[in-house]
Amino acid sequence: MSNPQQRKQQMSVLDRLQRYLPQLVIAPPFLLLVFFVYGFIAWTGIISLTNSRMLPTFDVQGIQQYVRLLAMDRWNVAFDNLLIFGSLYILFSITIGCVLAVLLDQRIRAEGALRTIYLYPMAISFIVTGTAWKWILNPSLGIESYMQKLGWESFQFDWIVNRDMAIYVVVLAAVWQASGFVMALFLSALRTVDEDIIRAAHLDGASTTRIYFGIILPSLRPVFLSAFVILAHLSIKSFDLVVALTNGGPGYSSTLPANFMYEMAFRRNQIGLGAASAMMMLATVAAIIVPYLYSELRAKRHG
């Protein structure tokens, strides 16, 4: 007599399993994520409030590490460098990527090949980029010596060994690497633009430049925003490029906060100070990402 009922119960167990299966599958990675990412963020936060040196200690002292950090010339140079590097890197990558995309959008021949050539740098690791540019820019090996050998004796291009200019060398290499990626991003967006819009604008009497700058690019605002957020967080994370290209030098004139953090935490036994600098970087990233996520989520809810 209980046969149908039993079956019903079995069914409901299966049903329930089916309903909770996604949660069950998602749970372990989720827990790992919470532990290793957010757990360690919290841990770093606590360490930054202690005076840990070689080994972490847990007696919270207050914000003295931050006070020390902000008074250090090395940190201030690194943070100023981040501002210079970040703004120039984002500005030039987007401008160059955008212009390349517009040019490639003119349905020229060999477009596929050109696109691959421009995109390729993104596939190279920062270490390789850094090393290659280090050789190219080295005064006694690269462009400078080459031009001098060609007979232009007074030619000088020694930014990489110049205190004031070294950070711009990092910008140069990073822009070289990222522009192709930005171009691909813009090109794919340009390709979704209705060709009739361009035709209509031609009939209305707009020049090609006017069409791109007055109509098409403004309608690609979301792409600009994505490019900005991607490049901004890449620039804050930048570490390996500096290591390979200038190793922070000359002196510490071209260090970035990530290099500073590594130097303090793992080389100079200043874990507390390193943690404080890491928290500063986290705050910088958050200042960019949080408004972006907020606007995205809000747009989705309203859209």
Partner: peptide, 24 residues
């Protein structure tokens, strides 16, 4: 010309869409 897809300029208001030809 009135296009098959209308081809309105997405970033401009209706007023500017209509006035664009005159503006140019």
């Amino acid at each position: 010309m009135v296009f098959q897809s209308y081809a309105l300029y997405p970033n401009m208001t209706v007023e500017r869409n209509i006035a664009f030809g005159l503006e140019m």
